[in-house]
Simulated scan of single mutants.
Amino acid sequence: MVEQMICVELIYAEPDNQTVLRVQLPKYSTVADAIRLSNIAQRFAPDGPLRSQLGIFGKKVSPERVLKDGDRVEIYRLLECDPMEARRRRARDS
């Protein structure tokens, strides 16, 4: 019996660059499986993408989430500072 495969995209965005990787995985693979198979951690997220926030089409998911064909896995970078605090600083410095 031939194993069924799915195709998903992994997205990692840096301030000046966005990377899109397409990977094929066995059906019932998880977000963590896709991250490991793609090697995106070694290329772009040395702090560990499994500790980062993860999403599929903008909705937060856990690394254990089972993927469907066509899913778009998004790896969110950790914020360097609180966005509200950054706005306060900019307003104060203006």
Rank of each mutant, 00 (worst) to 15 (best):
Tyr28Gly: 01
Arg65Asn: 06
Pro46Trp: 03
Phe57Tyr: 12
Leu37Cys: 09
Lys68Arg: 13
Arg88Phe: 03
Arg22Pro: 02
Val66Met: 08
Ala91Val: 14
Lys68Ala: 10
Tyr28Ile: 03
Arg22Met: 09
Asn39Phe: 07
Leu67Gln: 02
Glu64Asp: 15
Val2Phe: 15
Tyr76Gly: 01
Arg88His: 08
Val8Met: 05
Arg92Asp: 09
Ala41Arg: 11
Glu74Asp: 09
Pro26Gly: 05
Pro63Phe: 01
Ile56Thr: 04
Leu21Glu: 14
Leu79Asn: 00
Arg65Asp: 01
Arg22Gln: 14
Gly70Arg: 07
Thr30Asn: 03
Asp33Pro: 05
Glu9Thr: 00
Ala32Lys: 14
Ser29Trp: 03
Asp69Arg: 05
Glu3Ile: 12
Ala32His: 06
Ser52Pro: 02
Cys81Gly: 11
Glu14Trp: 06
Leu67Ile: 06
Gln18Leu: 12
Asn17Leu: 10
Ile11Pro: 06
Asn17Ser: 10
Ile75His: 07
Ala34Asn: 04
Arg51Phe: 09
Arg36Tyr: 11
Gln24Gly: 05
Arg72Gly: 08
Phe57Val: 04
Leu21Phe: 02
Ala32Asp: 09
Arg65Gln: 15
Gln42Arg: 14
Val2Gln: 11
Glu80Phe: 02
Thr30Glu: 05
Arg92Ser: 14
Tyr28Lys: 14
Ile11Ala: 00
Ser62Cys: 01
Asp33Cys: 00
Arg92Ala: 13
Arg90Val: 08
Val8Gly: 05
Ala41Val: 07
Pro46Tyr: 01
Leu10Ala: 03
Cys81Asp: 10
Ala32Trp: 08
Met5Glu: 13
Ala13Tyr: 06
Gly58Ala: 01
Ile35Lys: 00
Asn39His: 14
Arg65Lys: 12
Cys81Leu: 09
Pro49Ser: 03
Gln4His: 11
Arg89Val: 14
Ala91Ser: 11
Val20Thr: 12
Arg22Tyr: 10
Ile35Trp: 04
Pro63Gln: 02
Phe57Gly: 03
Lys68Leu: 13
Tyr28Val: 08
Gly58Tyr: 03
Val73Ala: 00
Gln53Met: 11
Leu50Thr: 09
Glu9Ser: 13
Tyr28Glu: 15
Ile40Leu: 14
Leu78Lys: 15
Arg72Gln: 10
Cys81Tyr: 08
